[in-house]
């Protein structure tokens, strides 16, 4: 046992919690990083707002716009139903630009996974057009689409079947007819990128959930898709494991890969994604830059979206939207 005591005391040990791969309350993190007062720190937004000093100077964070240029994925009036007449997607129109890192959020059953699986070619729309890099791929087979659009499932066990991590990553490459030399080279590059270098000869069955998730990610990355869809990749991962995974994804995004991620972890969205699309009842109800979307707290809460504490606190105190604790600390100075 590392720590024991009342919740307020334990959750105020921000650095220790971070070192254990845990995600302390953002209010406590802000108070700790700004050295605002002694422990225990406030754990909720109202408590933090009440204790926050009144003499402050706030600078505006840079407003990031959306990616411009050509669309990587384009959906035009897309409809889909699992059962005849029961539409799960109702005329979706969306363009995901090249190099964008987009979050698809919404309640369970809102149509996020269905939309993502249509982009990946796993499902075919009843009506509408799907374009990937300008090409109409509405009727394209999923196996062909897989070369352009990689899909990482929530449950890594759906994808893993080889005896070693190395073979698992190499499978798609061998299936594509690559030479063993090229396969080995690509396996090494990808395993290095996702931190699996030391586990290449392990049996994936005996790895932890986070390691199996990384194996699934690596097996898709190896194929070098230009678009990657992550369907709730952080489910069942600790905040530390989530951060490690998302840092890898972020690295890929910076290298030019277009990312679409479905998640219920809003701190992941505010930290890593430049654009947010909110879905409800098979429709897109909000779409825009992350900061703009998260400035509509009331609207988001109508759809049961858990807005991060830092967003709520910055809006409450200054009427501004800071997306991460670091951004808050950088832009708010106590006089």
């Amino acid at each position: 046992m590392v720590l024991e005591g009342p919740a307020a005391n334990v959750l105020s040990e921000v650095e220790l919690l971070h070192s254990l791969g845990l995600h302390p309350p953002e209010t406590a993190e802000i108070f700790s990083k700004m050295s605002l007062r002694g422990k225990p720190y406030p754990l909720d937004v109202d408590g933090a707002a009440e204790l926050f000093p009144s003499i402050i100077k706030v600078t505006h964070p840079l407003a990031a716009g959306l990616e411009q240029g050509e669309p990587a994925v384009e959906l035009e009036d897309v409809w889909f139903a699992y059962e005849p007449g029961q539409w799960v997607l109702n005329g979706i129109n969306i363009k995901v630009m090249k190099g964008e890192m987009m979050a698809l959020i919404g309640q369970n059953g809102s149509g996020k996974t269905t939309l993502a699986q249509i982009v990946a070619g796993i499902l075919r729309p009843a009506r509408g057009i799907v374009r990937v890099f300008g090409k109409d791929v509405t009727r394209q087979a999923v196996m062909v689409r897989g070369r352009e659009v990689g899909y990482i499932f929530q449950n890594p066990d759906y994808q893993i079947f080889s005896n070693t991590v190395r073979d698992e990553i190499a499978y798609g490459l061998r299936a594509a007819g690559m030479s063993e030399y090229e396969v080995e080279k690509q396996v090494n590059t990808v395993s290095e990128m996702v931190g699996l270098k030391d586990l290449l000869d392990e049996d994936p069955f005996f790895l932890s959930k986070a390691e199996r998730q990384r194996t699934a990610v690596a097996s898709i990355l190896a194929l070098n898709p230009r678009v990657i869809i992550l369907d709730e990749p952080t489910t069942g991962l600790s905040p530390g494991e989530t951060t490690a995974l998302m840092e890898t994804v972020n690295k890929l995004n910076r290298a030019g890969t277009t990312i679409i991620t479905i998640t219920h972890d809003m701190w992941v969205v505010t930290k890593y994604c430049s654009r947010v699309v909110l879905m409800a009842d098979g429709k897109i109800v909000m779409d825009g830059p992350t900061r703009q979307i998260f400035s509509n707290i009331r609207e988001l809460e109508k759809y049961d979206i858990e807005v991060p504490q830092v967003v709520k606190l910055s809006n409450k105190l200054f009427g501004q939207t800071f997306l991460t604790v670091d951004e808050f600390v950088e832009n708010v100075k106590i006089r």
Binding site: G146, G150, F153, Y158, Q159, Y171, G172
Partner: peptide, 16 residues
């Protein structure tokens, strides 16, 4: 349900 999802997952990574 699992079988169909697995089939989709494998096809999406090029398993024929």
């Amino acid at each position: 349900g699992d079988g169909l999802t697995i089939l989709a997952a494998q096809q999406a990574r090029g398993v024929n």
